[in-house]
């Protein structure tokens, strides 16, 4: 019984991390309609920023968050305004924009990766921050993972509040649900999309900073995060915050349960099995727009 409880806790913590890493993508893809293939690179870039702040300047990653998130917001705003707005303008429909953005961000992936390689080299990086064991229901978890989970909850909750209780947030949701009709009710599409993309970027950066406290990473590892985030976002329903959270937790729980009680070798199979089952039952994802 205690083993089962411990497994649940471990699974939820892992799932929280998946959700955190995916929330940014759901904003960028669901609202700004930019399928950002360089997503994982931004996660890793934020991780490097945290590493540099921590090892060179002695700045704690949690304070680092306060620096990295606004910076990432501005950088992503600029990327959207300068680099992606021309694509948005000339795209005749959402499908064309998706294709264009995939190609453009695929290029961006190599630029960001190249810059990181030039600055930090290709070697593995890892640092020790808050790796103190904490015991919860018989599961021993490091404090850094718990802190990451806590921040994921705060960031996710904060975003949810902003999206549901503010005018801007409502506009963002309107764009996510029906991009064609949103301008008819006076929503500034370009501004809302840029805002969503930048906010997504800031959340990505927070994910990268938090993940860097307990994962070993290198400049080439971005694609791992892009893939995981994509699975979570599609499984949860594109553009849906709650879906992202539920899908992330489901994924973490499945992996941990399978690793503990079946065989660690089958975690990948279980992940994609779950992914397929959900997509067959609800093609638009758990909380997908079409299923509403």
């Amino acid at each position: 019984m205690e083993a089962a409880a411990a497994t649940l806790v471990t699974g939820l913590v892992l799932g929280g991390m998946y959700a955190l890493v995916a929330i940014g993508l759901t904003l960028q893809y669901g609202v700004a309609r930019i399928m950002n293939l360089a997503y994982g690179e931004f996660v890793v870039a934020a991780a490097f920023a945290a590493l540099w702040l921590f090892t060179s300047l002695g700045v704690s990653p949690l304070i680092g968050l306060a620096l990295v998130m606004p910076l990432a917001f501005l950088a992503n705003w600029a990327i959207y305004r300068i680099f992606l707005t021309p694509l948005v303008r000339r795209a005749p429909n959402a499908g064309a924009l998706e294709t264009d953005s995939i190609l453009a961000t695929f290029g961006l992936l190599f630029v960001v990766q190249g810059v990181m390689l030039a600055l930090f080299g290709g070697a593995y990086q890892s640092y020790s921050y808050l790796s103190i064991p904490v015991e919860i229901f018989g599961a021993t978890i490091t404090a850094n993972r718990l802190v990451a989970l806590g921040f994921a909850a705060v960031i996710g909750g904060g975003l949810w509040f902003l999206l549901t209780h503010t005018r801007t947030g409502t506009a963002v949701r309107a764009v996510a649900v029906n991009p064609a009709a949103a301008p008819l009710v006076g929503i500034d599409m370009a501004r809302t999309a840029a805002l969503a993309f930048a906010a997504g970027g800031a959340v990505v950066a927070s994910g990268g900073v938090l993940v860097s406290t307990f994962l070993t990473f290198n400049a080439a590892m971005g694609v791992v995060f892009t893939m995981k985030a994509l699975v979570v976002v599609i499984m949860g329903g594109v553009g849906n915050l709650m879906g992202c959270l539920v899908a992330g937790l489901l994924l973490g729980l499945t992996e941990t349960l399978v690793a503990s009680f079946v065989d660690p070798g089958l975690t990948l199979a279980a992940t994609y099995g779950l992914f397929l089952t959900i997509l067959i039952a609800r093609p638009a994802g758990l909380f997908g727009v079409a299923a509403r």
Binding site: A3, A6, T7, T10, V13, L14, M17, A139, T140, I141, L215, V224, G252, E255, T256, A259, S260, D263, P264, G265, T267, L268
Partner: peptide, 20 residues
Amino acid sequence: DRTYPVGTQDMAPILAEAAR
């Protein structure tokens, strides 16, 4: 005696079983 996939990000369940 177990294997795990490349890129496994959480080793807690595996180590808990090994310790058991």
